[in-house]
Each structure stands twice: as structure tokens, then as C-alpha cells.
Design a protein around this nucleic acid. Structure first.
Length: 230
DNA sequence: GCGACAG
DNA sequence: ATCTTGTCGC
């Protein structure tokens, strides 16, 4: 197994990481609606860890515009590049994710992250960061509301409510399955919140989480096991 | 000042 | 994220 090295200029301290977010945020593009559902491939990315061995495994899975067929997949294993610090998740996950995306045999289209985009203390979460670094359209779908608030959306699939940071709308609590806890969608780079919600609904015909992240999650776990041996 | 807090 | 079996339910 080949273990990837993280970029030499990757932040090493929390102070450096926050400064990097403030700088990169200026390059975030938020005025593009982004490709409509059904017109481009969707790529899910996710990461799994083995803290004891200091390893991280990332996976990228490309689904066809209809969301039924896998067009391509790739994995990458590396050393953990940053500790988990709320608000700085991107620095922990992205080196491996970027390596996996580089290894894809096909164009990724729109990328779906397991986490937040602009729903972030400095409006620069994982999905926004990945978008700026790659130039690709990227949005985020998280499983928890982090430090944001919202009024419960209707019970039916498709119902949504604003995800708020005080009075500012930073995303949406979107019900992908009737009667099931919502997911938390936010825009990232070159994709608006409405387009992100439309893609999220298209990717959840059966489960709460997008098919992209479900597939990427399974693949990165398998890659980690493979790397560790077993 | 302390704790909580995406994964 | 991760530690972890069976079990209730559509």
C-alpha cells in the first residue's frame, strides 16, 4: 500500500488553519445556480479513520446523472494531517479526499460532501473549501445541525426549513424521508442552496442520506480495512 | 473561564 | 469518526 504525503504547505496549527479559511473564502463562488439534477454525474466523497495507526482512507464514487450506475470510483490512504477540531474539519479530511478525486477515471461533475458548506462559523466549511481547491461545483449534506438552529420542517419528504445562524440563513433542514430526521444541506462552491436541495432529493429515493455518500462511506471503510489488513 | 461543537 | 448484537419494523 502506498501512503500519500500531505502537502508541505498544509496548515499545522489552528491559527494557521483559520487564517487559511479567511483567505480562501474570498475565492468562493456563490452566484452560480449550478447544474440541474439529471444533467451531470454526481460524486460522493467520504473518509474513514484509524486513529491508533494514524491512518485516513478517502473514497470518491461517481454516479451517472440518473443516480443508478457507478461510472467510476477511487480511494486514497494517507497519514492523518490534522486533529479533529470543530470548524476545521476540512484540514483533517481534504488531503485524502483530493488524492482520491485525482485518481478518478472519469470527470466528477458535481461533488457531494458529508458535512457543511457555508453553514460554518466563518462560512467556509468542508464543501466550500473543497470547491475552492478544485474549482468543481460542490455542496454539503450533514447529519447534524452543528451550532445552528431551525424550526422543524413538515413531516413529508421534500419539506424544508431554513437552517439559521442567528438571523442569517446558512442552509436548510431538508426532509429526505417522510417522518425521518432531516438532513442539513448547505451551498458550497458554484451551487446554490436550492440546486443542492434538488440534487439531495434526487439522491434519496430510499434512504435518508444521499446515495453518493452512502456509496463513498462503504468504499472508504473497505479501503481502510484493506490498508490495515483484514 | 468552561463546555459544546460537522466528521 | 469510533467502540458494538441483536432486534423491532416497513
Amino acid at each position: 500500500m502506498e501512503i500519500l504525503r500531505t502537502p508541505a504547505d498544509w496548515p499545522r496549527t489552528e491559527t494557521e488553519a483559520r487564517a487559511a479559511q479567511e483567505t480562501l473564502r474570498a475565492r468562493l463562488v456563490r452566484d452560480e445556480a449550478g447544474p440541474a439534477p439529471g444533467t451531470v454525474p454526481l460524486t460522493g466523497v467520504d473518509v474513514a479513520y484509524d486513529d491508533a495507526r494514524d491512518l485516513v482512507a478517502a473514497a470518491a464514487v461517481v454516479l451517472d446523472p440518473g443516480g443508478r450506475t457507478v461510472l467510476g470510483r477511487a480511494t486514497a490512504v494517507g497519514r492523518v494531517a490534522f486533529p479533529y477540531v470543530p470548524g476545521l474539519l476540512a484540514f483533517r479530511e481534504l488531503p485524502a479526499v483530493l488524492a482520491a478525486l485525482d485518481r478518478l477515471p472519469v470527470a466528477p461533475g458535481v461533488v457531494v460532501c458529508d458535512g457543511y458548506g457555508v453553514a460554518h462559523p466563518r462560512r467556509f466549511g468542508l464543501a466550500a473549501h473543497l470547491g475552492v481547491l478544485t474549482g468543481l461545483p460542490v455542496f454539503g449534506v450533514a447529519k447534524n445541525p452543528f451550532l445552528f438552529t431551525y424550526e422543524a420542517p413538515g413531516e413529508e419528504r421534500g419539506a424544508r426549513a431554513p437552517l439559521l445562524d442567528g438571523a442569517e440563513e446558512v442552509g436548510a433542514a431538508l426532509r429526505t424521508r417522510t417522518g425521518v430526521k432531516p438532513v442539513y444541506v448547505s451551498a458550497g462552491h458554484r451551487v446554490t442552496l436550492d440546486t443542492a436541495c434538488a440534487h439531495t432529493l434526487a439522491l434519496t429515493p430510499r434512504y435518508r442520506l444521499p446515495e453518493t455518500t452512502r456509496r463513498a462511506d462503504a468504499l472508504c471503510r473497505a479501503a481502510l480495512k484493506e490498508a490495515v489488513g483484514n
